[in-house]
Design a protein around this nucleic acid. Structure first.
Lengths: 230, 230
DNA sequence: GTCTATAGAATGATAGAC
DNA sequence: GTCTATCATTCTATAGAC
């Protein structure tokens, strides 16, 4: 299942000679594709892959259903494009977690970024969650390669902190899972959180408060030295 | 939405005079219903409401599809029954969090129970997560009534601990969210966790380790006095 | 490049024989 | 109480006019 689906990054053929008309068409295509991708992200996150219909996505993007199939041949190809997009955002954020920082800096920054993503890309987070809960039928290969490697490298870094006495001896893996789960909870369970907030989305200051609480509890929880996050 | 759906606990009419045959039929019905409910829980958790087909559920339960419709008139009624079941389990576990215990006792016990549920009822946890991510189309009333009341009462208890100096001043609401998210993560993202565990489910000792880490970090994170969880 | 109309397949639910 | 056969609906995807 991992290798038999080619990602078509550009269907604009390089064999087409008319550059002028080509770039114009490319502009239209790019704009429409973006509209469709944005609509699809919302619909997939709200109804899941099976619950989403191409009709809903087409309506959300403001194009006829047949037009959608012109840009994305199948529903599955569209879904894969969105998953790829999300995974890319996750990985970019994860880069901040680098070996040169001390634990407080590294973890504070990582938690901040993950909370920001939960606020700016809640749909993506939910699609990811949905995909995992269904056994990752589409992205299993990502889990087994990229995610596993990233996870192991971060575990090594955390273990290094423990060995140098910078944080308490906790299981690095479960510390990572805690950070993932708590930060993504604010995206995945946003509806529940909003309902318990009187039916309103969290305000900017409420988001800030959530973020501070998460950082405080986790950093204090692992005995990180020199805690100064305010 | 809260009161217009009667739960049919027993469709065996009390006007039926033949007691012997009646209880026999009730036994068959109960057994079949249980088979169907168990199969449905698995299928709904794996594919979501829309992705699940009555055919899959019927196959999983070992009954013909038409037979399934004999016991549960519609797919939606079957789904509601399962959601009710899950919500009931959550609430029961939540009772352990009572006012008389000290923070360490209360929170340790609560986290233990939530972790146990994640291991014993992962399907239920995922169905709940799925339902919330889709905007709680079926259980919105539960969120606005029972869950809100329970949450507010626990927030008051935690605030009491803070006022008495038993734990650090954290936002009780976000502490609850942290406990929910971390514990449920081990059910909702079990596939990801298993993949990162070499493709194998966590062993009993690995579950114990996860539970201890969660308790340690959270209790230390809120400065709970007298931490003694091992 | 856009859109109407529709083909083809899958699904929820039911009828009716046993 | 069980099960085969089938209806009615819905959905993905495509054909073909503009």
């Amino acid at each position: 299942m991992s290798g038999n689906e080619t990602i078509q990054k550009s269907t604009i053929s390089s064999t087409e000679p008319d550059i002028q008309s080509n770039s114009l068409k490319a502009g239209i295509r790019q704009k429409k594709e973006l509209q469709i991708l944005e609509a699809a992200e919302k619909v997939f996150s709200e109804f899941g892959y099976h619950g989403a219909t191409t009709q809903m996505i087409a309506d959300g993007a403001g194009v006829p259903k047949a037009n959608l199939h012109y840009y994305f041949p199948t529903k599955l190809v569209l879904y894969r494009r969105i998953i790829d997009q999300i995974f890319s955002i996750w990985l970019d954020a994860a880069q901040s977690f680098d070996e040169n920082s001390d634990p407080v800096q590294a973890l504070s920054s990582y938690i901040d970024k993950k909370m920001q993503i939960s606020r700016s890309h809640p749909h993506g987070s939910r699609i990811w969650a949905n995909e995992i809960m269904q056994g990752a039928p589409i992205i299993q290969d990502y889990l087994e390669t990229t995610l596993r490697e990233w996870t192991n490298s971060r575990i090594a870094i955390i273990q290094g902190w423990i060995d140098r006495g910078l944080i308490d001896p906790v299981d690095p893996r479960h510390l990572l899972y805690m950070i993932w789960s708590v930060t993504q909870h604010y995206a995945d369970f946003a509806h529940q959180i909003d309902t318990l907030n009187g039916g309103k989305p969290l305000s900017t200051s409420q988001w800030g408060n959530a973020c501070e609480n998460v950082k405080k509890i986790i950093l204090a929880g692992i005995g990180a030295k020199g805690v100064d996050i305010k």
